[in-house]
Design a binder for these strands. Structure first.
Lengths: 149, 149
DNA sequence: GTCGTTAACTTGACTCATTCAAGTTAATCG
DNA sequence: CGATTAACTTGAATGAGTCAAGTTAACGAC
């Protein structure tokens, strides 16, 4: 087994973070499955590396969020989702029925990509746009619940 | 005490909803305090009408949401908030530190006020815009938590 | 290589907002 | 002035996430 240094290892080292099986596996998993829930990351990664506590998944994801390697999406009424695409202020399209999420590029530009006509004295740093609708599958299918992706 | 029919009573009757002290008081309260949480509505209304279970607050608010008399806002990481302004697709400005919310008129127009450049086959019915920042009070004040309004 | 430090992980209890369920009360219609 | 049933009360249950104490293992120093 050659001991090559993968880009993931580099990304972690560059931020002074220890490299562990859990962390590498979570980053890899998110590359394959963007918009995954904690539940999904936990299942997938546990299988890949044998086992991992759910708490560890929370820890790893939070560490990544702090390190700007991962971004969190919290659609109202659905568990949080995680993705590796950070810093480009793109938006999301959420299915009301199954929770499925798709990326939507920001049509305007850099962040904050929209400026409110009245800032009420706030120091605004983000304009979060969430499109809500019903995905193709749920438009035709009978009644599905939060399984998705 | 004259028994005049208030607009609130009319609004309820018009929708075939029974008129109760709880319902009238919640609608009144929300007129005075837009963006209130369940907690706040519960405290305020309990005082006004003597007492009311928290569950009733949930029931009343949900009935109003179904009847389109009230709208719900769910900022990530904060409890839900309720307001009487419905149907005009205006947006919200949320303070990251105290959760305070301000209304922001939609600068574009009717709902959905923004159209994504790619609908991914979804049947989109809403573009929810949430501006995030730090309110004036929290910019200067030391560390506050979810008290607000 | 091995040792020590401490970040990362495990386990399990706990919180908070919200929902579910069963029983009681009271608004409205006849 | 009842009867019907929507609205309310009480209390248990849920789901997502956090907190806290103890154990393990990365990795820098020797």
């Amino acid at each position: 087994m050659s001991r090559e240094v993968t880009p993931i290892v580099q990304q972690l080292r560059a931020r002074g973070m220890r490299v562990t099986a859990a962390r590498s596996a979570v980053l890899e998993w998110l590359a394959d499955y963007p918009h995954a829930t904690v539940e999904q990351v936990h299942e997938g990664v546990s299988q890949r590396i044998g086992s991992l506590s759910k708490q560890a998944v929370y820890d790893v994801l939070n560490a990544f969020i702090d390190a700007d390697l991962v971004q969190q999406i919290k659609p109202a009424g659905h568990p949080a989702r995680f993705e590796r695409r950070t810093g480009d202020n793109h938006h999301h399209l959420v299915c009301r029925s199954c929770g499925r999420i798709e990326d939507v590029d920001c049509s305007i530009g850099a962040k904050p990509c929209l400026t409110p006509n009245h800032d009420h004295g706030f120091d605004i740093d983000e304009a979060e746009v969430m499109y809500w609708g019903v995905c193709k599958a749920c438009q035709t299918a009978p009644v599905t619940s939060d399984d998705d992706h």
